[in-house]
Design a protein around this nucleic acid. Sequence first.
DNA 1: TAGATTGTTAATCGATTAACAATC
DNA 2: TAGATTGTTAATCGATTAACAATC
Lengths: 224, 224
Amino acid sequence: MSDAKDKPDELSADTTVPKAVVSRLSLYLRELQRLTREGEETTSSTQLGRLLGFTDAQVRKDLAYFGQFGYPGIGYRCHELIHAIKQILGTNQPWPLALVGLGNLGRALTNYKGFGSQGFQLCAAFDIDPTKVGQTIDGIPIFHHDDIARIVKEKNIRLAIVAVPATAAQGVADALVAAGIEGILNFAPVTLGLPKEIHTVGVDLAIELEQLSFAVVSRQAKNG
Amino acid sequence: MSDAKDKPDELSADTTVPKAVVSRLSLYLRELQRLTREGEETTSSTQLGRLLGFTDAQVRKDLAYFGQFGYPGIGYRCHELIHAIKQILGTNQPWPLALVGLGNLGRALTNYKGFGSQGFQLCAAFDIDPTKVGQTIDGIPIFHHDDIARIVKEKNIRLAIVAVPATAAQGVADALVAAGIEGILNFAPVTLGLPKEIHTVGVDLAIELEQLSFAVVSRQAKNG
DNA sequence: TAGATTGTTAATCGATTAACAATC
DNA sequence: TAGATTGTTAATCGATTAACAATC
């Protein structure tokens, strides 16, 4: 399937891709990387689906948005599919990241190794505390908020993580957008108001926990 | 609308509620709380939708899964709707939480104030490091992994946060489930294999960042 | 070949949006 | 009353699943 067959451009989506498909793509990638670590050469839509709780049809349909990656009768070669998904997600290239806010969460993130292996690398941190500015933390230089625009441009940073208190988040986001940032991972518990061309993903611990408490109480309401 | 009208049970869903509805409910709650902090008495489906990027119809439809909370011609009284959503999500009651793993992320969470205000409270932490066990961190007692079952039962803990390395996560999850935990917020970058009656929510920083890199590269592919 | 598995089409299912009578 | 806004039904839209010919 390496050749593009009748598809004009094998790795770019012709039709618009649902958000849910993209997050499953990330899950496939994570699972494929685990399988290769465990020595597997190939896998199948059935196996991937079973490991992640999806149907085999869904796995195949998701991948079909982007091209043909499998071999009928055989399945998918793990390393090939990993390569293809990374290309789709854009993580075959490195992504320098900015981190704004060095409270508890921000400092934990400077130390976090989890996304380094996926091509993301913190290369500038920002805070307003004058005792922090000018220092480095885990090898990452700390700058003042006022330098966001300059540093973002100098280091060609396109994605940023916001880990400041809720009250400061919108101002920080505005500064990042003004500096040319294209995507924001927001840990502050607020919905940011931003131009629609700026991509945002929000992670709010309270909201995640609320999904769990709802699931638990609604299940017990059903079952008595 | 305080009376239940023709609905048999105003706050429990008769039909099964989509996951997406529940997470929007959390967003409505967060926004309503912000509006009341800013002194607003009432709001409307149009205002809530605009603030969060949804249509007004969707806001009303989501709420309609659970009952009638609004006043035609007026909108929603913020404090009433907050109360109702908390009851739906189960967060009108306190939820003691267990935290497993006291690495960078785990320690950041012990200090995090964000979910306390929503009724969630860390009341036991677990680690295997003997220098940590027996200490307290931010007022939270630290126990050994081997005591998970005992402490979970003693403290009536139903929800847990897993913040251990990927390789340890499945074992920890199994221990939590054996101890009677009903829901897990998993920060480890693995899909946990658990009985279907156990609810899990996964938060993986790399995956969130991948959603952003995809959005950025696919947009530029489209626009040139 | 027989068995396995893909990619894709059609059928099903579910979720979102539009529209509007009912209400304040 | 006139204007605003709800709750709900019907129409639209989108996503998932089932089925199967094509392929190895």
